[in-house]
Write a protein that binds this DNA or RNA. Structure first.
Lengths: 155, 155
DNA sequence: TGTGAAATTATCCGAAG
DNA sequence: CTTCGGATAATTTCACA
């Protein structure tokens, strides 16, 4: 469940064209192969083969849609810093937090705190409810919540 | 530059089919309209019209590729909590941090700290360099860095 | 890697509920 | 207003050079 461990070694033979394709797909994940081909100076078929290969080697893990959650009524975003009891292992941390539907991501971190939990909720009342739910999952010994006022994301 | 303010009001007329389409596109952003149509019980044309409308209303902001950065040699991910001098405004915070190429996202937050900066770097030496660079941007008064050991992301 | 052909899909139209 | 069916354009996909 946690994204770590085996199979994550670096892929060696990535060239500038591959990097250009990744950049183009980052800008628009539904770009056509013909469009990308024109920009990198390859044929459509060769471009498709490279993208297929990037998927096979695991460099590309998927494609997704970007959604403005505010427009769906989920206006509040927050990070909750969480400390767990010393006996709690990492798997349990991720499992208990990810079970909450409002939790978008769980980062286990090094240092005095154990995890950074990203949540998205409808309003402040909802945020309070989610934090209470997290704290009641048993092994949590303390939380500090950072409410997001604004965000900037690359590209 | 910072994603906040006007034009972010909730879109009212989103029904269950729209939500299903968003879920399908979240799973696979390159899914065909024919595929989605079959799953939600609409025609291809009707499905395309709904997705077009979700883009026009701003619910869908784009499509992108998901990349395993470890495979590209960017093995280390971290969050840096940043405090700024009292005179610094939000725009400056985001601008100085986002200028660093290693910075993936900047979240301005409420509370005793001002921003949470997400960075991705090649190794620990590189992490040190980025943090030093952030601290030297002038107005920063303090940082605390959380190195990511593992991550879980929804779906 | 490129070319070309075939299968699939996207896109637009008028018509209908 | 949304949907459907069909017709055309564009794209994907694959075998072979």
């Amino acid at each position: 469940m946690l994204n770590k461990g085996a199979g994550d070694n670096q892929v060696e033979d990535i060239d500038d064209i591959d990097r250009a394709l990744l950049r183009l797909l980052h800008e628009d994940g539904r770009r056509t192969f013909a469009d990308m081909a024109a920009q990198v100076g390859l044929s459509t078929a060769a471009t498709k083969r490279r993208v297929d290969r990037l998927r096979e080697t695991g460099v590309i893990t998927g494609f997704t849609v970007q959604v403005d959650h505010k427009k769906l009524g989920w206006a509040v975003e927050a990070f909750s810093e969480v400390r767990y009891a010393g006996t709690t292992n990492v798997t349990d941390i991720v499992e208990t937090a990810s079970r909450q539907p409002e939790v978008q991501a769980v980062y286990t971190v090094a240092g005095d705190l154990d995890a950074l939990v990203q949540v998205r909720v409808r309003d402040l009342e909802h945020l309070q409810e989610v934090i209470d739910r997290l704290r009641r999952t048993g092994t949590i010994t303390g939380t500090r919540t950072l409410m997001v006022l604004g965000r900037w994301t690359r590209s």
